[in-house]
Structure formats: C-alpha cells, structure tokens
C-alpha cells in the first residue's frame, strides 16, 4: 500500500466512517454509492488532498472519475504529482 493510499484510508476512516475500519474497503468500490461521501464530503476530501499532498485541484477535476474510489483518488494524486515533477 502506498503512502498516499494509507493516508487516504486513514482520512476516510476518520471523517466518513466515524472511526470505522477503512482497511477493508475495496480500492475500486464507489465511495458515493457506499454512501461514504456526498456533495459536502467531496469538498472535505478535496480540501484534504490539497492540504495533505500539496495539490491545486481545479474545478474541472472534481468529478467522480477522479474522486469516487480509493483507486481513482490515488491515481489522480499520483498523476498530479507526476505532472508537477515532469
């Protein structure tokens, strides 16, 4: 498990699962369909990603393709970091 995924799971457990176990959450499971995040939770997630990983997330990037599962979020964060490093 990458550091990004580990931090992300900890954030989800604390903020959206009320301290529940996020380790068992499949990486490709939809966070929206699971009822873990809604429109307000999305903003909390975006703020976390910006602060924790030093990202600037544009409005057009706030879409389910980037933010609706652990796998999508990790890929999104890694992709942003890769583009900054390039």
């Amino acid at each position: 498990m990458s550091a990004v995924e580990s931090d992300l799971r900890a954030f989800i457990a604390e903020n959206f699962m009320y301290g529940g176990d996020a380790a068992a959450l499949p990486t490709d499971r939809s966070l929206i369909d699971e009822g873990l995040i809604d429109s307000t939770g999305v903003l909390e997630l975006v703020s976390f990603l910006e602060e924790k990983f030093g990202l600037v997330i544009g409005d057009e990037e706030i879409v389910p393709a980037n933010l609706d599962s652990i796998a999508a979020i990790v890929a999104f964060v890694d992709g942003k970091h890769a583009r900054v490093a390039a």
């Binding site: 809604d38 429109s39 999305v42 903003l43 409005d59 389910p64």
Partner: peptide, 30 residues
C-alpha cells in the same frame, strides 16, 4: 453528487472580498 459542490466552489473562488449567503439550508451551510 459533485455538481453542488463545484458550483459553490466556483462562486467562492471569485474575485469578491466577501462571499455571503443568507438562506442556506443544512446542505448548503455544510
């Protein structure tokens, strides 16, 4: 599910020095 968040974020990232809302329901307030 992300439309409301994006709309409000776009509003609040405008050039205004003060953003206000005076009829927010629970979702909007959050």
């Amino acid at each position: 599910p992300m439309a409301g968040a994006r709309l409000l974020r776009s509003f609040m990232s405008g050039p205004q020095a003060l953003s206000l809302g005076d009829t927010a329901n629970w979702t909007s307030k959050t």
